[in-house]
């Protein structure tokens, strides 16, 4: 299921592979993100790893309740998980990627990189891994 990106929106994605998040920090960050603390948010998809070894899919569409679903994958119990983990946001132009990056960095371990993809970059979501799992962007 696809949907278009408006001219005044941007798509931002950020690799979280190898990061293991503190659930309480993730809750706080997820609440803030979906409530607009980092700018207007239209859609979010993320797959995150948390400290008990489970992986979660987070999704949000403007006007709807945020959803959090545990993925049916094995718990990663030794070392840092090397399966793909990522957050992707469709946001308004007031989006604050530095604030989001800083929050993610604190909630887990340092990030490896981040990048901002303008809408003109289209849907080049390489390195998706199992992000393809019900990915809607």
């Amino acid at each position: 299921m696809g949907s278009s990106i408006a001219a005044n929106q941007l798509v931002w994605h950020h690799d979280l592979t190898g990061q293991v998040l503190d659930p309480a920090s993730l809750n706080l960050f997820w609440f803030e993100l979906t409530e607009g603390a980092y700018g207007q948010i239209h859609r979010v998809k993320a797959i995150v790893e948390i400290v008990d070894g489970s992986a979660w899919q987070l999704s949000f569409n403007q006007g709807e309740d945020p959803m959090e679903t545990e993925l049916p994958v094995e718990r990663w119990l030794s070392g840092r998980p090397d399966r793909p983990s990522q957050i992707e946001v469709v946001a308004g132009v007031d989006f604050d990627p530095i604030g989001v990056t800083a929050a993610c960095r604190v909630a887990g371990s340092p990030m490896r990189y981040y990048s901002i993809i303008k809408p003109s970059c289209g849907s080049s979501h390489e390195n998706r891994g199992y992000f393809l799992y019900s990915w809607q962007l």
């Binding site: 503190d22 309480a24 920090s25 809750n27 706080l28 960050f29 929050a103 604190v106 909630a107």
Partner: peptide, 8 residues
């Protein structure tokens, strides 16, 4: 603090 984020 309830979380690492809040603590920081």
């Amino acid at each position: 603090y309830p979380s690492i984020l809040a603590e920081q």
